[in-house]
Simulated scan of single mutants.
Amino acid sequence: MYYDLIAEVISLVKVYEEEANPGSQDIHLFLKWLNQRDQASGYSSPADPEWEGKAKGRSADSVINTSLVHLYRYAKLQAKAAIVGTEFSTPDEFIYLISLVSFGSMTKTALIKLNVHEKSPGIQIVNRLIHNGLVEQEALGTDKRNRMIRITSKGTEILNESMQNIRKATLNVTEPLSNDEKMDLIRLLTKLETFHELKAATKL
């Protein structure tokens, strides 16, 4: 539930009762008072943004899709710069290690799915990590096809040595945003990602 919003509405109702002295519990009078209060404080809804091609009919969906692709590429450039001089050959390798540190050991399939990779390139990433001694795999019971992947002490050490550069790279991507803007963006991106995760799951 929207507890913070409910608490704010209750506090506004108290102010309304003290300032307006309405004499009746009329929602329309309350909304009118609230609107006048916002106008007096200089609040106004932000105008819709402008973008290239808008006048010619380019949709908001097109702009969002293009921006997401561009931001992915900018983030990838920052990530590549962060691993220069390390044992990582691609940013995906340290992302896989961070996944294992954050969520613990998991099957190869789960690790690949978590990072939204197709099976073939995902297996290549895991195999490189195994070859370099950064992760290890262990069969689950008698089923040797289903293997658990876990980070090794070497993998943990290499990841820790690289974390300062990795954090700097992630900060560079979001640098112009305020903390409030970052929270708003996280909410929107989480909504999008959750939708597509559920949609992908229904196709399995």
Rank of each mutant, 00 (worst) to 15 (best):
H70M: 12
K76N: 13
K76I: 03
I83F: 07
S67F: 09
V63C: 03
L68H: 08
G57K: 09
A75S: 12
K76L: 09
F94W: 15
S59Y: 10
A55N: 05
T86N: 09
S59M: 06
E87N: 11
A60L: 12
I98S: 14
H70Y: 05
Y72C: 13
T66A: 11
L97G: 01
R73W: 09
L77S: 11
F94G: 00
K76G: 01
Q78F: 14
V84S: 13
E93T: 02
L97C: 09
A81H: 14
G85P: 03
F88Y: 12
R58P: 02
A79V: 11
A79T: 03
R58Y: 03
N65H: 10
D61H: 10
F94P: 00
E87A: 07
Y74I: 13
R58E: 02
I98Y: 08
D92T: 08
L100C: 06
L77V: 06
L97F: 05
F88I: 08
A79D: 04
L97V: 04
V69Y: 10
S99Q: 04
K56H: 10
K56F: 11
K56T: 08
A75Q: 11
A81R: 13
K80S: 12
S59A: 12
Y72M: 13
S99A: 11
E93H: 02
I83G: 00
I83Y: 09
L71N: 12
L71S: 13
K76Y: 08
A82E: 00
A55I: 04
Y72L: 07
K76P: 00
L71H: 15
L100Q: 00
Y96R: 03
I95C: 08
A75V: 00
N65F: 12
K76E: 06
E93R: 00
Y72Q: 15
A55S: 04
D92G: 12
Y72S: 09
E87M: 11
I64E: 02
S62Q: 11
I98R: 15
R73Q: 10
I95D: 07
R58G: 04
A82M: 01
F94R: 00
A55H: 04
G57I: 06
S59V: 15
L68M: 07
V63G: 01
A60Q: 03
G85I: 09
F88W: 01
K56W: 11
H70Q: 11
P91W: 02
Y72P: 01
Q78S: 14
I64F: 05
D61T: 14
A60K: 14
S89A: 13
S99M: 10
T90L: 10
H70N: 15
E93L: 05
S62C: 08
L68Q: 08
H70C: 15
I64D: 02
Q78T: 08
S67I: 09
D92K: 02
